[in-house]
Design a protein around this nucleic acid. Sequence first.
DNA 1: GATGAATGAGATTTCATTCAT
DNA 2: GATGAATGAAATCTCATTCAT
Lengths: 221, 221, 221, 221
Amino acid sequence: MSERGVTRWRRRKEARPAEILQAALASFQERGFAGTRLEDVAARAGVTKGTIYLYYPSKKELFKAVVRSELLPNIEWIEAALHQPGPVAPLLERLFTFWARDLFPSPISVLPKLVIAEAGNFPELAHFYLETVVHRGLDLIASLLRRGIAAGEFRPVDVDHVVYCVVGPLLLTVLWKHSLGPHDDRPLDAGAVCRAHLDLILHGLQAARSARKTNRERSRP
Amino acid sequence: MSERGVTRWRRRKEARPAEILQAALASFQERGFAGTRLEDVAARAGVTKGTIYLYYPSKKELFKAVVRSELLPNIEWIEAALHQPGPVAPLLERLFTFWARDLFPSPISVLPKLVIAEAGNFPELAHFYLETVVHRGLDLIASLLRRGIAAGEFRPVDVDHVVYCVVGPLLLTVLWKHSLGPHDDRPLDAGAVCRAHLDLILHGLQAARSARKTNRERSRP
Amino acid sequence: MSERGVTRWRRRKEARPAEILQAALASFQERGFAGTRLEDVAARAGVTKGTIYLYYPSKKELFKAVVRSELLPNIEWIEAALHQPGPVAPLLERLFTFWARDLFPSPISVLPKLVIAEAGNFPELAHFYLETVVHRGLDLIASLLRRGIAAGEFRPVDVDHVVYCVVGPLLLTVLWKHSLGPHDDRPLDAGAVCRAHLDLILHGLQAARSARKTNRERSRP
Amino acid sequence: MSERGVTRWRRRKEARPAEILQAALASFQERGFAGTRLEDVAARAGVTKGTIYLYYPSKKELFKAVVRSELLPNIEWIEAALHQPGPVAPLLERLFTFWARDLFPSPISVLPKLVIAEAGNFPELAHFYLETVVHRGLDLIASLLRRGIAAGEFRPVDVDHVVYCVVGPLLLTVLWKHSLGPHDDRPLDAGAVCRAHLDLILHGLQAARSARKTNRERSRP
DNA sequence: GATGAATGAGATTTCATTCAT
DNA sequence: GATGAATGAAATCTCATTCAT
């Protein structure tokens, strides 16, 4: 038993869970959650059905593990990246750019579609995703908006509902990619949508500078 | 059997397909496509499983028939409602109000979710939905935006991509209702979201009032 | 469609549940509960796996149905047969005879073994059997013993525990038949055991004859 | 490694088989044969699944080894305890007390249930158990009964079948403990059953007392 | 001798679909 | 046209057993 042999074996063993998660994500992307057979995942990961159960006790837990290992780091990355002082607009820009450049092209962009499609049949997944991903994301955006409003950078808006307006178009891009996009002859340029969206909401949110200023200036003697 | 009896029977017979579609829509709304059992649809329609196959050759075809039969009338209603001259903002408001007050509460609000969830399994349906609903809807909004820009009501924007920004939040409301909403403890007020969205995009689209006006006014003699 | 055709079909259809129960009992007898595959039951009943689920929603329910349809009538028959006034000894004799002549040779004699063997893995079955069979049987015997004691036919004994002494040997006969019996070269004569048992407990229960006789004799001049 | 270390290791190694059997017995007691997973046995024995296969080639063989190793000592203990001259009644009392006080609470009390449950799947085990335990036990009781009858202590009875009547209630206690007992709300007091049983059969077997009294009285001066 | 990762056959249960009546 | 009994192909999950290390 050479050092290399042991090493290779161990490397293989330690890589198993990750390999399985990759395979699961790929299968989920192709067939959806309910449509994915554990056997497909196993074959793709180069193991057998039983092996999956050595690492994940059920299909649902496998899904959760995919979310945790693939999506959560991104959530945390974003949270960290946006925890910065200063004006909010550049942070939103960074968020949108991250969405278009990193999230959108990644396989994990299929996860929102999966959750939306299967929430009804798998309430457990719905709860998990809400707590792990959705609430954190919405809260993050809400806090940015509030910061901007407090700083006078944005005009006062109904933050609780505007967050959905901020998220909506981003969400649309990834849903599109994994549903109608492949069947449409008009390709969707996610980057362009994100840019247009950023432009739109920054205009929509901006404290009426000139106008108000003008008004104020006018109102001044 | 009396004349009336025969007539009623025949009427019943002719109503069968529609009754089945209604029942199917209701079941799809509750359980999604995969989660719906033909037996449930049959029971709800007051017939037996076998009868469904007299009218629709498979579950997939039944699904397609539901989407087809329920969507078209609504699309046409919207198109008619928005084909009006005059300023665009009130039309957008009408659209958003219609969405929140009529579409959102209706059973058909589940259709976008169904299509998104099943597009991968039903390419034909994806094409149908794209042509029948999505493109018409997007084009309608694009034309409104262009009208507004041309009229100087809106500032010039990247219309081709802004349409997705307009649609995104509306779509989010109905997706939420039929996926995560029932599992969330923070209720989503679709009306409030639509209002916030309208406010946001009208501000976001508006021709730079004070500044430009000022400029224009300045440039005028 | 001749009258005969309809009749035969209907007869077949109505006989299905009973045929399945017979097949299930036979399979349970051969392989035990856990060891029986639904497919075996189906094959024996001349149907396919799925058909069983038309009539019984699970394997456990199938077992319960067997108990209900095959064993319960016997319990009720016994209860009725022993609800008679008069001395108790002949009733016990009738019970023991019924056990040896009717229960012991029947396929249902395997049920106690099944329940004992599987109670640990199927608590639901244990509860069901306790309530449906065991408690009723024990209560019946207890009431007979109490009647006998009250009437002076039996001496006073610890009825609550003696019931198990009455049942034990009967139970042993059917357990033996379906476990060690087939492997033993000393055949067990259930009838003889029941007779010996009856003789033993009637002697064991009888109001102290000799003693009293002696007393009486003494008291006689 | 020190001498002691090696010794301890070796001792450990030699103790392995016994440790595994103990663990297996405990698991069989909790879950029955089919319900026991080798992994549980291994965990309880402080080894891994693979190790069990070093000592026992299959789950079935492990089961047989448990029965063999745990039963024999007890059988021999009982035989020794009852090989005593003098009246038989006290020996029966000792047997019943041993049963209630020593056997019943011990883990080995599960063995009869296991054998009854699995005899069908383990013919070899059935034979082994019959020869090693059952026949010896029945013969022992039969010889006691014959001694009692020969000595005039008991009335003449059908010894070959009465032995089953003697054993039945004892057996019932341990079967109950490991099957229905845990699911019943009426606790079974094994000691009380054994006492009631002893009382019942001693009364049932006793030679008409007056006769004996007469004998004894005669033998007295 | 001991490990424990991996296997893969098999079990119950579901349900779209068929077809004799 | 309508029925509904029957089918049979999956799919998830379990676990005794193997074997490279």
